[in-house]
């Protein structure tokens, strides 16, 4: 792949939380290309969430650089708010705004930040809602939705900004098992449409099916990365072998 295709370029990323002995991230470097679906797996506490949250600077890295679309977003002079509009994020706990109905959840940011008219924003939102099968819930409030519905709305909320990359932090971990499928379906469709995605998950079968590349993290570092087939069939490091034997 050519370097123009690199959407996010992470270099020597380190993160140390205040009061912690060890680094949560200990020198992570990776290029994420346009259209790539990168899955991040690893044991609990290995730094997956921290890595993902550093990508849009929800966590401030202690060291290292992150280039997003060629711009160093770790540079203090960069207006991070501008770039975050292009990086959709989906949280484990959905984090819908409970005081707004679904439509308002979806249109707030496009209207306030991208200068869209309300009609325009609602039209985009409605199209996306239809695609995830929730057009009939536009007037509902978040507390009237099931977990699976909430997460699909949360994905749509991020998509309404027309992001260049979508970041997912365990999007199905807070869901009842019967609702996992509906969320994974939406993600699968996104991947098929060549949305660039970075997904932290424990859903190994889903990773195997959808990922273009899987990254194994342990103790704040990328230990191994590979295409899905080789990742599961030919793990090289002992740590990944140990991990896979536990989760599969």
């Amino acid at each position: 792949m050519t370097t123009d295709n690199v959407l996010i370029s992470v270099n020597g990323l380190k993160k140390k939380f205040e009061g912690m002995e060890l680094h949560a991230l200990n020198g992570v470097s990776i290029d994420i290309h346009r259209g790539e679906v990168v899955f991040v797996v690893g044991p609990s506490g290995s730094g997956k969430s921290t890595f993902l949250r550093c990508l849009n600077l929800l966590e401030e890295p202690t060291e290292g650089t992150i280039l997003f679309e060629g711009v160093d977003i770790t540079d203090k002079k960069t207006d991070i708010n501008k770039h975050r509009q292009k990086m959709g994020m989906v949280f484990q706990q959905f984090n819908l705004f409970p005081h707004m109905n679904v439509m308002k959840n979806l249109t707030l940011a496009p209207v306030k930040l991208q200068g869209k008219s309300v009609e325009e924003a609602q039209k985009t939102a409605m199209e996306l809602l239809e695609r995830v099968g929730l057009a009939n819930r536009a007037d509902a409030y978040p507390n009237q939705l099931s977990g699976g519905q909430k997460q699909r709305i949360a994905i749509v909320r991020a998509l309404c900004m027309k992001p260049d990359v979508m970041l997912f932090d365990e999007p199905t971990s807070a869901l009842d098992p019967e609702m996992v499928g509906e969320v994974l379906n939406v993600m699968r469709e996104l991947a098929e449409e060549n949305m660039t995605m970075v997904v932290v998950t424990h859903e190994m079968a889903f990773a195997k099916e959808v990922a273009s590349r899987i990254i194994f993290m342990d103790q704040g570092s990328i230990v191994e990365e590979n295409n899905p087939k080789d990742f599961f069939e030919n793990p090289k490091s002992e740590r990944l072998k140990g991990f896979l034997s536990k989760v599969i």
């Binding site: 708010n81 994020m89 991020a158």
Partner: peptide, 21 residues
């Protein structure tokens, strides 16, 4: 919940906008 704050910031709202909206 601090997730509300993070959701606002991740959409691109600055600190003040996140507070207000």
């Amino acid at each position: 919940d601090k997730g509300q704050f993070e959701a606002g910031r991740s959409l691109g709202f600055n600190y003040v906008q996140t507070m207000i909206y």
